[in-house]
């Protein structure tokens, strides 16, 4: 029943998730969600010269939560952080050929986890004014 509601893409990313794991040398980490609601996503980034060289995730959650985490890591790998920030939950959903309506929040969580990881990197590695500019950009986008 649950199966039927998920696209083949979602099932593929759930059954064969890409980039699962953690990065010892991550310089940006974002965790969102909470166990009470049944979803936690943690994204690890290794960024060099503002380019995401490597990305991994760990997720506690349903099929959609795992699939959205997986596709989000695929979408950002190799991108510079400014382009990565442009990735929205809508893009995540489209890349998965859609999600059942009750699972849309999983795509939002993937976007939030990604943003949290990038901001974590930016805060630790960028100059204050650059970081603030990045934060502003995120704010105006929303």
């Amino acid at each position: 029943m649950i199966n039927m509601a998920y696209s083949e893409k979602v099932m593929d990313h759930f059954m064969n998730p890409r980039n699962v794991g953690s990065l010892e040398d991550a310089n940006g980490v974002g965790t969102v969600g909470n166990a009470k609601c049944g979803d936690i996503m943690k994204i690890y980034l290794k960024v060099k010269n503002n380019v995401i060289e490597d990305v991994k995730f760990k997720t506690f959650g349903c099929g959609a939560a795992i699939a959205t985490s997986s596709i989000a890591t695929e979408l950002v790998k190799g991108k510079n952080i400014y382009d990565a920030l442009k990735i929205t939950n809508k893009a995540v959903m489209e890349a998965l050929d859609g999600l059942p309506p009750v699972k849309i929040h999983c795509s939002c969580l993937a976007e939030e986890a990604l943003h949290a990881a990038i901001l974590d990197y930016a805060q630790k590695n960028m100059k204050a004014d650059e970081f603030n500019k990045l934060k502003e950009k995120l704010k105006t986008k929303k």
Partner: peptide, 13 residues
């Protein structure tokens, strides 16, 4: 540490 729906999907598979 795990969530039920993922468990059901993997069992289903």
């Amino acid at each position: 540490f795990i969530e039920g729906e993922s468990l059901l999907l993997l069992l289903d598979s």
